[in-house]
Nucleic acid binder design. Sequence first.
DNA 1: GCAGGCATTGTTATCGATAACATTTCCCAT
DNA 2: ATGGGAAATGTTATCGATAACAATGCCTGC
Lengths: 330, 330
Amino acid sequence: METKGSRSPAMTDVARLAGVSHQTVSRVLNDHPNVKEQTRLRVRAAIAELNYRPNRAARALVTGRSQLIGVVARNSMLYGPASMLTEFEQAAADAGFAVSVGSVRELDRDSISAVVDRHLDQRVAGLVVIAQVASATEALAEIPADVPVVFIDGDPAAGRSLVTVDQVAGARAAVRHLLEAGHETVWHVSGPTEWFDSAGRIHGWRQTLLEAGREVPPLLSADWSAAEGYRAGQMLARMPEVTAIFAANDHLALGVLRALHERGRRVPHDVSVVGFDDVPEAAYFISAADHGAAVVRRCRPGRPDAVAGSAARGTRGSGHGDRSGTIGGT
Amino acid sequence: METKGSRSPAMTDVARLAGVSHQTVSRVLNDHPNVKEQTRLRVRAAIAELNYRPNRAARALVTGRSQLIGVVARNSMLYGPASMLTEFEQAAADAGFAVSVGSVRELDRDSISAVVDRHLDQRVAGLVVIAQVASATEALAEIPADVPVVFIDGDPAAGRSLVTVDQVAGARAAVRHLLEAGHETVWHVSGPTEWFDSAGRIHGWRQTLLEAGREVPPLLSADWSAAEGYRAGQMLARMPEVTAIFAANDHLALGVLRALHERGRRVPHDVSVVGFDDVPEAAYFISAADHGAAVVRRCRPGRPDAVAGSAARGTRGSGHGDRSGTIGGT
DNA sequence: GCAGGCATTGTTATCGATAACATTTCCCAT
DNA sequence: ATGGGAAATGTTATCGATAACAATGCCTGC
């Protein structure tokens, strides 16, 4: 060690300088009871003098648990997951944990297993899985029973610790809003159908129409991008019967808006479009409409209840799926 | 240990089953040369049978280095940093490292120091600082000389390892494009002026106008949000002399577009707006214009050279600052 | 056959912290 | 003064891996 640079001070060095045992240094650092104030101050002074820095690896080795929380998430620029991750990291840091992020390109079993393996090698204190498809659940069978796991946006039926919002209720509110505005029926541009979020929104959309005795039009499924929204919108814009569209997120809605515009369909005069997220930029989307009118407006139905974890709701910020808004709504 | 669950198998257990020393197990796992194939297979079989999982904390303790890379980033939903972080995590994972993300609410010295401390406690193998302001540099004085640090979007003048793109050249290209389209001068809505990115773009904008012998209008500085773009746009929309606007990112441009629209300023008929990022959704922004025309169009000038790290450019994807595009350009 | 060199493997020590158990000190009640 | 109990502190062991050095086996050349 001396040959390639001086060793960092360890607890034993602090102990020697302070004239106590290394165990007492540990007690001071971990706020154990039963340490005299005088002793504590002496140890603190030695820590400062030596510029001692704890080695978390040593602690993890003895305790069998690191101070890391592993996050499993899809490689995604989607506003919802990204905002969620950031909020989560802040909360974890405040609780004294570091966050290790492992992302997967696709939510398939093998990709997820590889990320989980990496986290388990680190002996993470817990795992957070931001997973929207069933394959994530299957991939997690190998997690030891003593590692806490929380799913965000998982399967509401899976019976695991879960933080999510009620996709069905959110979708119902959006569709109801459009029906009450006088539309005969509502068309839906969904996200990927294998995602739990999408399935919930589709279910809510379909149910609400059926309960209202309205025709359920064919579903247009997409991914979460504006490009796919545009593609779906190109179809819908050609159909004069289409007067109300519920898009599964704001980016999809943006694409739909553009397609409508290119076909001369005015929003909200000819067609109403409701998004779902709460992407900050959505407030500034312009839809072609009569000049001088207030073109973009948010319509805020009552907040649906979360399935679980109203405190975690705060962690989620204003995010993903908890509000529907009208872009060019009536 | 037995009292609260069986201990996970360690290297010594694998060694016993395979009939070799624990050192040989380590050699097999770390692909050392000088291990007989026959021995290697025997060890591999024992690893599989025991479902052995390495403990990275033990390794970190002995080597003094963990297999973690610490990232310091601002709590931000901005498209550029978020896409960068995701690409980076993928590259790190491919190289066998986990990424621990520490975010700060503000890029001030104390916040950054706290995050850096957490990473150093973990004995990270390296640090990546996504920092756009000078205070980040000051906060990093305490990093030991033997911890590699890479800045992304730092100060081009700081002489440290840096990955960034040429903000000045990108801005010059955007402004030149607007001048060549016939505009007398170009107005600029910048991001936060203390960010290196903003400073570079402002510099490029100003320089290009001066070199062309054009008047340099007053700068409108903002943050990176559509809301701030809207605020600046409300001013510009009132001034008939304003025919060309260079916005520092696409979200700012979106806000500007909306403000212009509300004042009846047609894009691109009356005003041209150029953004800077390459946010996917920007392709779908609608600007109020003559019906039937192709309303939103991307204009792609030649790519400016990066300051450093063309390989890292790939890591950055199509992202932040390397292209300017016209939203409703001529 | 013997010596030397290289391949292969093993033994001992170490990393820096906490757990577990042991010892000492102090205070109060009888 | 003595004994008991609690507070305060210390000693020993351990965690699971790699580093460093040691030992053994094998092959080739003389």
